[in-house]
Design a protein around this nucleic acid. Sequence first.
RNA 1: GGAUAGGUGGCAGAGUGGUCUAAUGCACCUGUCUUGAAAACAGGAGUCCGGGCAACCGGACCGUGAGUUCGAAUCUCACCCUAUCCGCCA
Length: 419
Amino acid sequence: MLDIKFIRENADLVKEAARKKNITFDVAELITVDDSRRAILTEVETMRSKQNEIANAVPRAQNPEERERLIAESKSAKELLQQKESELNEVMKQWQGLMVQVPNVPDMSVPEGKEDSDNVELRTWGAIPQFNFTPKDHIELMQNLGMLDLERGTKVAGFRGYVLKGDGARLQFALWHFVQDYFLKKEGYTPMIVPSLIKRELLFGTGYLPQGEEDLYKTQDGDYLAGTAEVATMGYYMDEVLEKKDLPIKLLSFADSFRREAGSHGKDTKGILRVHEFYKIEQVVLCEASHTESVKYHEEVQANTEGIMQALGIPYHVVVNCGGDLGLGQVKKYDIEAWLPSENTYRETGSASYFHDFQTRRLNIRYRDDGKLKFVHSVNNTALSGRPLIMLVENFQQEDGSIVIPEVLRPYMGKDKIG
RNA sequence: GGAUAGGUGGCAGAGUGGUCUAAUGCACCUGUCUUGAAAACAGGAGUCCGGGCAACCGGACCGUGAGUUCGAAUCUCACCCUAUCCGCCA
């Protein structure tokens, strides 16, 4: 959500934002609706003021005749007021419907483009492994080593179901444990385990709704399953006023994440690259309302995640997402994509973005700055999704089908090789 | 699943039909005092709409929405949320 004042004063910017993000949105229409909202609101308030004035005069009436006259006057004034109020209600509905569609303004540095293929590579890290044998994909590797059971996973959970097992389960635990310890050495990150089953308003507040309804699982009670720990973590401070001295607040959240993948039925149908349920560790930073601060922490959370990939020794590259690949609220986004030998390409393992006050305005998360209340800025990035496990086994496979465990994970695995 | 209580500013909390311009306390901001801070004292301070270059002025906002009434934070209804108790269950 943007401030309507900002939208009015920067209509061109918002129009340009919609174009760059490849979103259909008519700013002029919103401003027209806002004009009538303001006009009608002013009328309603004037009428209400008049109504109050008459009502206040009633007990001070000099005689019964005057009293009767005032009451009659008030009654007729009220009828007019009610008509005007229902007019206002109509306009407000229209206004709110448009307001939640207003895109946040992308940063100047965001490249032009319509879809993910237009993202621009910023840097690469690590040498792409050269195998002197034909590398196997993660499915074959993990199944052979008893790390993954897709057949029974599907039996239990249906399409895209899976079970991590044996060293597969242990390797996943090792990754989580390593990431937790990695963040112990960073400044100020508080680990949390947050709910996945959450209220609708949090998804609205973080900007996943109303547009992303079909990507989310919903319960018969109207609750939703979040696609990322970001949602509950942002909701943690909803409707609160934070102290400036407590900023930035840095959180490291763990949660089970659910995605319907409604628009991707035909994509990545084999293995565990695209699944309905996976565990995720997410960084969330709430900082002071300044672009410089947002950028600073955006770079910080990005560096944190790259540090994890480097420690694991997984080759990756970083792309800056083009306008068309940005979410409604995102100002700028980096995707980190790790090398997947079986596909001979990089695949996304995480995504870092900042929003300025887009999310916190919807969630009503403020802080006090010299006595004034301001909306904090929010930043988030994946620390570890479910995918690095896949990259790890594929990149570290040996000719005999075994998997060498990266140095940093050995203390958690208790061995240096699987198989 | 059943029952009860409650939702008021940043927080606590008073107000149960008309000077509510929402008391009071704490926290916050600005002064005075101080080497600085604390304390004390004085003042200020929310959001939205409109007018004004501006200091400021007018209006609206007591969970949300309807209703009763000349008049609602206050009464009625519905919904949302929170807490507690009973039942069931992990």
